[in-house]
C-alpha cells in the first residue's frame, strides 16, 4: 500500500533566481492507495498531480508529511524505490538510447527486471531495439518506455500523463498491454490524465486535486454516485436554490430554463430523492452524472474557470 499522510509541498526560492515567494503545490494531502488497484489522479492544470507523483517516487522531498511505500519512507530510500517505477510525461531524456541500451540501463538498477517480458512486449509492439529512440515517433517512444517500465516488474507503476497526445487506437493498445501485465502480477497502477473518461473507464479508484487540496478520494463508482443532477418542475413557483439548501442539500450548480430548475447537488440518488419527495413539486427527475461531469462541477463549485467567464 502507498500511504500519503498530511503531505505539504512548497516550491519556494530554491534557486537564487527566484523571487523568494512560496508557491504551495500541495496542501495537507492524505490518501491511501491499496495494493492491486488501478488508481487515477485527476485535477485541474497545476493542481499538484505531477508533484504528488514525484513525491511518491522519491523525486521531490516534501516539506512536511510522510509518504510510505509498504510502510517505508520513499525519499532517499532504495528499499522503497525498488518497488516503484515512474514514467513521466516526457521522452526526450531517452533520445540517445536504443531500446536495448535502455533495457540494459534499467536492468542495472532493478533486480526484478525481466528480459523475457521485455522481449515479449517489444516483439508484440514491433519496436526496433537497435535504433536510437530519437528516430522513433511519439507513439513508439511511449510504447518503448512502457515496455521497459513493465519489464522492470515493480509492484507499483506510476504514469504521469503517459497517454496524452496519442491517438485512440494507440491509447487502447497501450492500456490493454499495461492492464494485462499489471493484473498478471497483481501490481498497482497509478495513472494521471486530463482525459476523465479514460480514468473513468480504466480506474477502480480516483482522487481529485484542486490548487493543491484534495477534493475527493474514493472508488470511481462512489464518486459518480455522490453527485447527481435534479431537474425539478413546479408551475406555481420556481424552486429556489435557497429552498433546496434549506432542505439540507448542497447545491453545486443551479440553473433555470423557464419553470424547470436544474440543480447539481451532492448526495446519492436515494438520499436526494427522499428529500425531493418531501418537497412540493409537480415533477422531478434525477440524472446520474459521468465522472467527467462530477469533475467539472466539483471544480466549478470551487471557482475554477470563473475568472475566464466575462460578466454581463
Amino acid at each position: 500500500m502507498i500511504e500519503i499522510r498530511n503531505v505539504t509541498m512548497d516550491f519556494v526560492g530554491k534557486g537564487v533566481g527566484e523571487s523568494g515567494k512560496a508557491v504551495r503545490a500541495l496542501d495537507d494531502v492524505s490518501i491511501q492507495i491499496p495494493d492491486g488497484c488501478i488508481y487515477g489522479f485527476l485535477g485541474s492544470n497545476g493542481a499538484g498531480k505531477s508533484t504528488l507523483m514525484r513525491l511518491m517516487c522519491g523525486v521531490y522531498q516534501g516539506q512536511s508529511g510522510q509518504i510510505l511505500i509498504d510502510g517505508v519512507e520513499a525519499w532517499d530510500n532504495p528499499e522503497a524505490k525498488k518497488n516503484i517505477f515512474f514514467v513521466n510525461d516526457e521522452t526526450v531524456q531517452y533520445a540517445d538510447f536504443t531500446l536495448k541500451a535502455m533495457a540494459a540501463f534499467f536492468a542495472c538498477y532493478y533486480d526484478t527486471f525481466s528480459h523475457e517480458t521485455f522481449s515479449k512486449i517489444v516483439g508484440a509492439l514491433g519496436l526496433p531495439t537497435d535504433r536510437k529512440m530519437s528516430t522513433f515517433s511519439k507513439g513508439m517512444k511511449r510504447q518503448a518506455v512502457v515496455a521497459v517500465a513493465l519489464a522492470c516488474g515493480t509492484k507499483y507503476l506510476v504514469m504521469d500523463e503517459a497517454f496524452d497526445g496519442l491517438d485512440p487506437a494507440m491509447r487502447k493498445m497501450l492500456k490493454d498491454i499495461i492492464v494485462d501485465q499489471m493484473l498478471d502480477r497483481n501490481a498497482t497502477l497509478i495513472v494521471s490524465s486530463h482525459n476523465v473518461a479514460e480514468i473513468n473507464e480504466l480506474c477502480d479508484r480516483a482522487m481529485l486535486l484542486h490548487q493543491g487540496k484534495l477534493v475527493f478520494d474514493d472508488e470511481v463508482d462512489n464518486v459518480r454516485g455522490s453527485v447527481c443532477k435534479a431537474q425539478i418542475l413546479r408551475k406555481s413557483a420556481r424552486v429556489t436554490e435557497e429552498e433546496l439548501t434549506s432542505r439540507g442539500l448542497t447545491v453545486m450548480q443551479y440553473s433555470t430554463a423557464g419553470s424547470i430548475v436544474s440543480a447539481v447537488v451532492k448526495g446519492s440518488e436515494e438520499s436526494v430523492r427522499k428529500i425531493l419527495d418531501g418537497m412540493e413539486t409537480d415533477y422531478f427527475e434525477l440524472v446520474p452524472l459521468t465522472l467527467e461531469e462530477v469533475f467539472i462541477y466539483e471544480l466549478e463549485a470551487r471557482g475554477y474557470g470563473h475568472e475566464f467567464i466575462s460578466e454581463g
Binding site: 514525484r54 523525486v59 530510500n77 528499499e79 515512474f86 513521466n88 526526450v92
Partner: peptide, 18 residues
C-alpha cells in the same frame, strides 16, 4: 541541471550516497 533526467535518476532505486 536537467529536469527530465532528474525525474528518471531520482526515481531509480538508489540512495543519495550510492
Amino acid at each position: 541541471h536537467n529536469p527530465q533526467q532528474s525525474d528518471v535518476v531520482y526515481s531509480l532505486p538508489m540512495s543519495a550516497k550510492e
